[in-house]
Structure formats: C-alpha cells, structure tokens
C-alpha cells in the first residue's frame, strides 16, 4: 500500500501542492526538448534524403560551436564569425559528400552508419587538434543573446525563465518554420523530398544526387550551428555533448525516422516527460539520474506497440 501510494498518489499530490515548481520543471524539460528536437531534425533531413543514419550530427553540433568560439578567440568579431562558421560547415558538407558518401553509394545501411561514426571520430580528433580539448564558453553576449532572466510569480511561488532559453526556443521555432517552408515551397526542397520518396525516380527526372546531398548536409550543418549556440549558451561547449546527442535517437524512434513533425513533437515530449519523471518518480523512488535511460525505455515501449514510431510510415514487407 505504502509503495503504491508513493508511485501513484504522492507524485501527483506534489505537483498540485507546488504548481509553480511543476511549471518550472516543465519549462526546463521543454528547453532540453528543443535541443533534442533540433538534433533529431538534423538526423531526419539526412535520413530522408539519403537513408543514412547520421551518427555524426552530434559531433557536428560540437564542431560548429567550437569553430564559432575558436574563430572569436582568434580575434574575429562575433557577427563575422557566424557566417565564417557557416562557410566552414559548407566545406565540411562538400568534403563529406566527396570523400565519404560518394564512394559508399549503395552500400548497406550499417556500413554507412559506421562511416558516419568514422566521421565522428575524425571530427573529434580534428576539433581537439585545432581548438584544444578543454571546454569552451559560448560567446553568448557577443552574439547579442540576452543573458538575464525573467521571474514570474504565479501561485505564490516563482518560475524563473532564462532569457537565453527563450531566445533558444524562439530561434528554434523560426528555424523550423524556415525549414518547412524551404522543404515544401522551394524547388530544391521538393527535390529533396522527391529523393526521399524514391531515389531512382528522382534521378530519372534529373535531380542531381550529389548536389542535393551537399545541400542537405549543409542544412544539417546550419541546424548544428544553431543547436551548438543554443546548447553552448546553456552548458558550455565541450565534447560531452556527443553523448547528449544520442538522445536524438529515441526522439527519432518515437517520432518516426522520416517525419520532420515527429522529430519536433518527439523531442519536446521526451524533454518534458524525462524531466517530470526524474523529479517526481526518479529522485524520490529510484535514486535519481533516471534521465540517463528514461527516453530509451519510453521509445522502446512505444515501439513495441507501434513498430514504426508515432509518425513513421507503415512498414510493408514483401518477400
């Protein structure tokens, strides 16, 4: 009885007793959810257009952020460093297409997956060689991102909201809108979607595979830079982010590998749920740190019910 009460009643009683705290928990969850969603978005774009499960998305985030901070350290003004970083990300996209993807066209999925892990290791080594292995501080103020915080006082308590988190959320929303417009309205965007639907049909109507790949990887690079700035402002720039980026996997599984909407919904849902679970169940009952596995277990449970994810396309198999 005691234990049933602590699982099914006490957490909800806590939520009601301190609603301001609950709001804070949800907000914190949403902000991490935005990060997961952004990383997952980078994955989805590449997966849609090339069926490559891009493990390197996480390290691209670190690499973009490191380049930005590194350029600034070397005396480049912050607002010039951003376009310069984008140039670097563009050349990275070209290099990946030329050196890695082109020779591996038509290989099994797992080989391409491994190749992106190879890219990850290479970028870690390269980033450390050029910029050093220690953690960096994101140049938040220099980029014009506000750093203060707003405090609201609902229900007699307080909810503290960092302005940079708000900036992050707004920035992410704008980025997603721009991306959706690009994918749905522009010619290039339609080509990308066509490639995602059917490679050969797309090729036969004159869509250039290699151009599209460069563009898609470049867009992922832009998303990576945005993610890097957002996350760097929150927690500093370091290679530890590589592991956090793995969280994008359950997000993808939940949302479905091909779905842009799924990536966003999945990211936000996992961000909020894992935080709420950790605070109200994990810490009091399980000794904490449940965020390490909660997302994966949740995705696993969802997959058992819907093997293609919440938004994924139904898998039809033929022999």
């Amino acid at each position: 009885m005691e234990s049933l009460h602590s699982i099914f009643v006490a957490p909800f009683a806590d939520m009601v007793a301190a609603p301001d705290f609950f709001l804070q928990v949800v907000w914190e969850g949403l902000v991490s959810g935005v990060l997961y969603a952004l990383i997952a978005l980078g994955f989805v774009l590449i997966f849609k257009s090339s069926r490559i499960f891009n493990f390197a998305q996480g390290i691209m985030v670190v690499f973009a952020a490191l380049t930005l901070v590194g350029l600034h350290e070397r005396g480049v003004p912050a607002l010039l460093a951003v376009p310069l970083t984008l140039v670097v990300m563009f050349f990275l996209a070209v290099a990946i297409e030329r050196v890695v993807l082109r020779p591996l066209v038509n290989q099994p999925d797992i080989i391409l997956f491994m190749a992106t892990i190879g890219v990850t290791l290479f970028l870690i080594g390269l980033g450390e060689t050029i910029f050093g292995g220690e953690n960096k501080v994101m140049i938040t103020q220099q980029l014009g991102i506000p750093t203060g915080s707003w405090t609201m006082e609902p229900f007699g308590g307080f909810v503290s909201i960092e302005q940079k988190d708000v900036t992050a959320v707004v920035g992410a929303v704008l980025l997603v809108i721009a991306l959706l417009v690009f994918l749905n309205k522009s010619k290039m965007g339609r080509a990308i979607r066509a490639l995602g639907d059917d490679h050969q049909a797309a090729l036969s109507v004159g869509i250039s595979l290699s151009t599209i790949w460069v563009i898609v990887w470049f867009i992922s690079g832009i998303i990576a830079l945005a993610t890097g700035i957002v996350w760097g402002a929150r927690a500093g720039v370091s290679f530890a982010l590589e592991v956090i980026a793995l969280k994008a996997l359950p997000v993808l599984m939940l949302g479905g590998l091909e779905s842009v909407n799924g990536a966003i919904v999945g990211g936000l849902a996992i961000g909020v749920l894992e935080k709420v679970f950790e605070i109200y169940w994990g810490q009091p009952l399980l000794g904490g740190n449940t965020e390490a596995w909660f997302a994966y277990m949740l995705a696993l449970l969802v997959l058992l019910v819907r093997p293609q994810g919440l938004f994924g396309e139904k898998i039809i198999e033929r022999v």
Partner: peptide, 24 residues
C-alpha cells in the same frame, strides 16, 4: 602527449572511413 591523442583519434576515424571504402 595530448596532441598525440588528438591525432590518434583523427587517424582512427580516417582509417575506419578508409577501410570501409576500400572493403566494406
């Protein structure tokens, strides 16, 4: 020795890609 470690990570990454291309 720190630089050696960095270069090492890079070389291993390059080798993985290289071997996958030469013989998947």
């Amino acid at each position: 020795s720190a630089m050696v470690e960095h270069l090492n990570t890079m070389i291993i990454g390059a080798l993985i890609i290289g071997f996958l291309i030469v013989e998947p």
